[in-house]
Design a protein around this nucleic acid. Sequence first.
RNA 1: GUCAGUGUAGCUCAGCUGGUUAGAGCACAGCAUUCAUAACGCUGAGGUCGAGAGUUCAAGUCUCUCCACUGACACCA
Length: 509
Amino acid sequence: MDFTITTPLYYVNDKPHLGSTYTTIACDAIARFHRLEGDNVIFITGVDEHGQKIERSAKKSNKSPQEYCDSITQSYLNLWDRWSITYDSFIRTTSTHHCSLVYEFYQRVSESGDIYLGKQQGWYCVGCEEYKDEGPNEISPSCPIHKTNLEWRNEENLFFRLSKYQKQIEEIVSRPGFIRPQSRRKEINNFVSQGLKDFSISRVNLEWGLPVPGYTGHTFYVWFDALLGYLSALNRNTLPVDLNQLKDKGWPTNVHVIGKDILRFHSVYWPAMLLSAGLDLPNSIFGHGFLTREGQKMGKTIGNILDPLELLNDYGADPIRWYLLKDIEFGVDGDFQQNRFKDLINNDLANTIGNLVNRTTTMSRKWFNNAVPTFTMNSEDTSQLCTDCLATIKCVREAMYDYDLKKSSTAILELAVKSNAFLSASEPWTRIKDIMNKELVAYELYSVLESIRIIGFLLLPLLPDLGMKILNQLGITSIPITWKNNLKWGLLAKGSLLPSPNPIFNKIL
RNA sequence: GUCAGUGUAGCUCAGCUGGUUAGAGCACAGCAUUCAUAACGCUGAGGUCGAGAGUUCAAGUCUCUCCACUGACACCA
């Protein structure tokens, strides 16, 4: 089965920030999960490189827009590389094949009769770069933010006939599971029910964009450019573009993961555009929350921005991934707190999971010739730990299919807690003193090792490095492409050698 | 302003259709302890459930009012 997932195409107006890193990490975890499930995953990310802000930023740094884009885009690529993001396709909206696709798409929408020339009128604030709500009868209104006079603009733009799709969009938006999390659905429903208005898809005062064929001076406006990047990413470099072939390349996506701020464009504009072009619709749109830091919005003016590259250098990928995926519910706003971060990481990764691996392998090596204990058992294992493991596997998989990363991580951690409790209850270190108990101790330690093995596998999508280290401690060094045959009880080879214990995770300070 | 959502222990949150002393994890305190990364385990302290009023035998859970924060209210990504 194909599984296609996208991050937004990030606006290269500025250096990558933690927000885009968060989205990308979440998508990476989901993508890794589906690969292990055996799906043919296409994980798309990329950059949106057109627009006035970029033009301006470029000017500020004395570069041409293209040079500017090149440098910021490179920093995205570097960042994803450093974070070991396993994307399959990276799309730039300045690439020539993207341009061809936009034309092809435009052609189709045009043929559907959904493009027309209209006027964009209104009071415009140059500072905000946007039209204000003031009515046409106002006399010299001013911008509440900039306190400057608004100018009346009467601009010729191409429009997309969104209003034509009112009925269909209403139906699509109310499909269960289309907009996630559910809590955001009402918002969009509300918006749609107010009546959809056509929106403009071209600009005349914007140089840095794709020129609209047949309309000199017009360039495509953001949503008729950036959104199409998802299609270009699948089309790769194939020319000429054939939109009909997208079906074989992974379209439609299973999910567009985006920040909640651009939910409307993805759940309303985008489906309408796709309908017009005769293409299938994405299965779902997932709008996640925003991150704050110590309760405050992150921003340049406050100077409290967390730089993803610095975080990575300071702590490594796994701790940050764990914090973002386990402590913050995917879809809800989250807060990054240094203290909480430290406590959570040390507790979960070092004390609970790390120590579990360490103590168990140490005991096994000590009493069973540096190897996984051997014992005989003639009936099927129905121990509590075995049951717990199977339940955890089920829970984790279901949660991941539902994009519930928090639930999934929590379930894995709970298995580690249960395994620790199991050791405390069975006290192998006491029992082993009586040689008669050796068989029982062997069985119990084996159970815990087995549980650790399952924890290691289940952790692979969320914390790829730590998951691998755990498996290494069990002497497992190669990971199969899918885990279907590994997520079962009793697969750890009895008597196989265990490497000498090495803390898999060191506490952070 | 209109609409929606949130407000429960220091922190992050559970609490479905109202029903005995309001829960979990972390942080904190004590006990115990080596198999282990002073880790694990056990116990404990911590809340007038945003405020006020009302319905009810009974409300964190329903109604109303108010307060605080967040989001949406169309072309900023």
